[in-house]
């Protein structure tokens, strides 16, 4: 059994292909819930979860409000909603103002996870063209959660990982393959 209650991942430009790769190479027995907040383009609002499910080794869902987080599933922030983790292990949604020009906001998801899971949370920041997520991953680090930032040299767009590295020092800076290995060896 792992000590971690959830893996929380944020990414923007270029992160879709990376998340797809990551989910497709997970061990099928991977049972820590994965919570994913990805920015998406306005005109591509649907179809994302379907595409991820084609290759993912674990089931990917866009959660409803108040949905309970379960083992062995991945949760994708629904388009045009902010996604939060509540203390009772449920997901809550909001349509309030954009944060860092984004809805969903990665900061909101990661910060709420840092409060709900404290040191029993792994936060990962991937490629992206926006600073959203930097504050969130810092919050996870401040609560002694385990933090990973994608190596900017391997990122399609390095603004997001670099913004994170400016405000915090992660436990690991990894390539995409390194992140996959890390996850599959978490047990």
């Amino acid at each position: 059994m792992s000590d971690y209650k959830a893996i929380v991942i944020g990414g923007s430009a270029g992160s879709f292909a990376l998340v797809l790769k990551l989910l497709s190479r997970l061990s099928p027995s991977f049972d820590i819930p994965i919570i994913i907040c990805m920015h998406r383009l306005k005109h591509i609002r649907s179809g994302l979860v379907e595409s991820l499910n084609v290759k993912s080794k674990i089931k990917v869902v866009e959660p409803n409000d108040k949905e309970r987080i379960e083992k062995g599933k991945a949760y994708l922030a629904p388009s045009n909603y902010h996604m939060f983790i509540e203390f009772d292990g449920t997901i809550s949604l909001s349509i309030e103002d954009m944060n860092n020009h984004s809805r969903p906001s990665i900061d909101y998801t990661l910060s709420s996870a840092s409060v709900a899971f404290r040191d029993r949370c792994v936060g990962i920041i991937l490629t992206g063209a926006n600073k959203d997520g930097a504050k969130g991953i810092k919050d996870i680090a401040d609560k002694k959660g385990f933090t990973i930032v994608q190596d900017p040299a391997t990122a399609e767009v390095d603004t997001m990982p670099k913004s994170a590295l400016r405000v915090m020092k992660p436990n690991l800076i990894l390539s995409p393959d390194g992140i996959i290995d890390f996850l599959n060896n978490l047990k």
Binding site: F84, I85, E86, F87, S92, S94, E96, Y108, S112
Partner: peptide, 9 residues
């Protein structure tokens, strides 16, 4: 109200 949203607001 749901805690996360209201506490942040």
């Amino acid at each position: 109200y749901s805690e996360n949203s209201i506490s942040r607001r």
